[in-house]
């Protein structure tokens, strides 16, 4: 079995994926706090992680819990809204559509947002996503596919309520 690597390699290998997940789940503004708390907590616990464990799934689990902590802490204090309530300006502006997708993900209900992040961005199977979100793997899969469907509708200029009505 492969011996445990220096944590530096864990940061290099998984840092970008965890940042993507944090951006999707927390929004651009809190993503870096989520990332920092995830890796600091992971570093402390790393010697106890069993050799051969799935490091990426372990990190996503920690990121999931840290994101919940951050959202709860924010709910307790009156802070300005995270996501700008201004609608993305739609297609046609110069750029790569970066902001649009980030904003669109921010409009998803939490479960869909998490399912999309953990399954599509971090590559976790729906069985593991269900382990994080609670519920069955099928429910996790539905949240993921509904989330993607909703994203497409938002990006095409539709409204979220329309998508929700459409979801069986």
């Amino acid at each position: 079995m492969e011996p445990k690597k220096p944590f530096e390699l864990v940061v290099r290998e998984h840092g970008p994926t965890v940042l993507r997940v944090c951006r999707a789940v927390l929004g651009a503004h809190d993503a870096e706090d989520g990332w920092s708390e995830t890796f600091l907590s992971a570093l402390k616990a790393y010697p106890g992680l069993p050799v051969g464990a799935n490091v990426q799934a372990w990190l996503v689990t920690i990121a999931h819990r840290k994101a919940i902590d951050i959202v709860r802490a924010k709910d307790r204090q009156p802070v300005p809204v995270d996501e700008l309530p201004v609608r993305p300006s739609g297609f046609g502006i110069p750029g790569d559509g970066h902001r649009e997708v980030l904003d669109a993900v921010g409009q998803l209900p939490p479960k869909q947002r998490q399912a999309v992040a953990y399954h599509y961005l971090a590559g976790l199977p729906y069985k593991d996503v269900a382990g994080l979100l609670g519920g069955t793997p099928d429910a996790a899969r539905r949240a993921g596919t509904d989330g993607v469907k909703a994203l497409r509708t938002i990006l095409a200029g539709g409204s979220l309520s329309y998508v929700k009505g459409e979801t069986p």
Partner: peptide, 16 residues
């Protein structure tokens, strides 16, 4: 669809 998430600036990871 999710491709815009792929671009993580190297500077961001370095800073973090």
């Amino acid at each position: 669809l999710l491709a815009p998430f792929d671009s993580v600036e190297p500077g961001a990871i370095q800073r973090l």
